[in-house]
């Protein structure tokens, strides 16, 4: 078997908490001993709420943040301490908010050309890339403020694809978009993944998207992967209370969906927070 496109081994990252005078007051463990493997052409979902360490993992995979320990391998080669330029030709990222990730003073064409120029690809590819993300070619001369959120995200995807990466990190690529647009962008990503043989690391807190888009999922809670496995299995039969809680928080429309929803005891008529629920379960186990 060939090496997986992305392999993360025992990745750990802590951030120091500084006092007002710059002294160390403690540390937050953002990512705690995380390991995962994504096979070539697969879609791996990292689920978790804000602060669970999702984006820190994305930044480390991109080489924007250095891990404290552990290793990240792309196609079997470690990226820690490797010259970043070559790495960026293989891994690219689509950011959460396309309104912020495109320079407002530069046209769409100019933004895409940055990627082409940086990796020695012909500038004439701008048109092809716009075709790929199903935007008209003349959008190359538009400024971001003339585009809708969905169109901007398509531009961001085109820009990431310009360097012809093997792995695309999608950091909540649809959370800043209207619900009606989200589905279209996900469809586009699925088509592109199939046509170009891309591997995705899909980061999101949106579990319904996760269920439809990813083949395998890892649930992050406070920097640790608490549950991992094929998406269908994890969603049908969650083993960890935190996964159950996340699933119970998803709004449902139909009865079938409601039947899939795990049972979570309510505290004062509301869904408990993860901390409350875990404390409750521990108390239950003790009393048994």
């Amino acid at each position: 078997m060939s090496a997986p496109t992305l392999e993360i081994r025992n990745l750990t990252k802590t951030f120091p908490i500084r006092t007002a005078f710059g002294g160390k007051a403690g540390a937050v463990t953002a990512v705690d001993d995380v390991s995962l493997r994504v096979a070539a052409g697969a879609v791996y979902g990292l689920a978790g709420e804000s602060g669970s360490g999702k984006s820190t993992i994305a930044r480390m995979v991109m080489g924007l943040t250095r891990p404290d320990s552990g290793d990240i391998l792309i196609d079997g080669q470690s990226i820690i301490g490797v010259k970043s330029h070559a790495h960026r030709g293989r891994v690219q990222m689509v950011f959460q908010n396309p309104g912020a990730s495109l320079n407002p003073r530069r046209t769409v064409g100019q933004s895409i050309r940055v990627a082409l120029d940086a990796h020695g690809k012909p500038a004439a590819r701008v048109g092809d890339l716009l075709d790929m993300v199903q935007l008209p070619r003349h959008f190359a001369d538009r400024y971001p403020h003339e585009l809708s959120g969905g169109q901007k995200q398509r531009v961001a995807i085109a820009r990431a694809l310009a360097v012809e990466p093997r792995l695309l990190v999608l950091d909540e690529p649809t959370s800043a978009l209207d619900v009606s647009v989200q589905a279209k962008v996900i469809e586009l990503l699925e088509d592109l993944g199939r046509d170009l043989g891309l591997t995705y690391l899909f980061i999101s807190h949106d579990l319904s998207l996760m269920r439809n888009f990813t083949a395998e999922v890892g649930v992050l809670y406070r920097g640790r992967i608490v549950e991992t496995g094929p998406t269908a299995r994890v969603f049908a039969d969650p083993q960890h209370d935190y996964t159950r809680l996340l699933l119970a928080s998803v709004p449902v429309i139909s009865d079938e969906e409601a039947a899939l929803r795990p049972d979570i005891p309510l505290i004062n008529g509301e869904l408990p927070t993860a901390e409350e629920l875990l404390a409750l379960r521990q108390a239950e186990r003790k009393s048994e």
């Binding site: 924007l64 030709g89 690219q92 990222m93 912020a100 990730s101 495109l102 940086a118 820009r159 990431a160």
Partner: peptide
Amino acid sequence: EYIEAAETLGASKLH
């Protein structure tokens, strides 16, 4: 974010 995006794409410092 667009500065970080440009860095991620491998753009030069001068650029």
